[in-house]
């Protein structure tokens, strides 16, 4: 349904590249419950791709399939032109896919800095002896990665709380720290699970701005799930609409907005 050339330029001047990840006929079941039924879509390089749908539509399950937490019973995940074999979540992460969580999943016993540093773990390779005596590669690596992390903290405007334990932060800041942790991993694809859930208007605006800035400055491909229709329509390039585990729409926000099935399933009910 989407016939576009290898790469194209959007109305606001960003370049969208070729297909980076493709989901082919994914079906996911829990016992007898079908969470996702035969869904296919792709994610192109550099775009902001949204997955929307009413509660229980299977959006979170979809994100979990992409990040390797669930393995679908049927279907294939293609990444960078190759079929991805069934993988453990940490292996998927090492391929450059980072994510945030709907219910914040920060490491509560650590400071903001340490939390964001965990995002760099896959870039740190120092051996155990070097770490034990804190010489050579361990020390060098720590400093190099600290610099990367400080840039991310700076970018998301949370430098001032770097030494604060995350358990003391308010909700909105926690969400931002989580974004920082995912971003610190330098991901090829960034998955955001309801990044604006539970936020007030101001915080939502901040978060939207950060998402757009991340995409703009680092060229990061972003796939996000969101409830808030208005925000999604504003920031995403293309939208997949799900309902009861099936795909009922796929296209630009404008296309989706005028799609009758989507209006029936979602828009007409949630937004009058």
């Amino acid at each position: 349904m989407f016939d576009q050339p290898e790469s194209f330029v959007t109305s606001d001047g960003r370049t969208i590249g070729g297909v980076m990840m493709e989901m082919k006929n994914i079906t996911l079941r829990f016992g007898g419950v079908v969470a996702i039924q035969d869904i296919s879509f792709d994610i192109r390089e550099g775009e902001i791709r949204a997955i929307i749908g009413p509660n229980g539509a299977g959006k979170s399950s979809m994100l979990n399939v992409i990040s390797g937490f669930y393995n679908p019973q049927e279907g294939e995940v293609w990444y960078k032109g190759e079929r991805r074999p069934s993988m453990k979540p940490f292996e998927v992460a090492r391929q450059g896919i980072a994510r945030t969580f709907q219910n914040i999943a920060l490491f509560e016993g650590m400071s903001v800095l340490d939390n964001v540093m965990t995002g760099r773990l896959n870039h740190m390779k120092a051996g155990i002896l070097s770490q034990a005596f804190w010489y050579g590669s361990a020390q060098r690596e720590e400093t190099e990665n600290r610099e990367v992390v400080e840039r991310v903290l700076d970018f998301l405007e949370i430098q001032h709380i770097r030494k604060t334990p995350v358990s003391r932060l308010p909700y909105g800041l926690k969400k931002r720290v989580e974004l920082a942790r995912a971003l610190a991993a330098d991901p090829k694809i960034l998955l955001l699970d309801e990044p604006m859930a539970g936020m007030n208007v101001e915080e939502k605006e901040d978060m939207s701005r950060f998402i757009l800035d991340v995409n703009d400055e680092f060229g990061t491909t972003i796939a996000l799930i969101e409830h808030d229709m208005s925000v999604v329509m504003d920031i995403s390039d293309r939208v997949v609409v799900m309902d009861y585990g099936k795909k009922i729409g796929d296209g630009t926000p404008k296309d989706v907005r005028s799609n009758q099935a989507v209006i029936d399933a979602y828009l007409g009910v949630a937004h009058d």
Partner: peptide, 29 residues
Amino acid sequence: RNLTRGSLGRKWSAIRDMDIAAEIIGVNP
């Protein structure tokens, strides 16, 4: 002290605080 302040220590703490999230951000449990 050195191990716990470095990357290995962060892996351990991540597993301690939330093992599932740790695995999803790339820590091999």
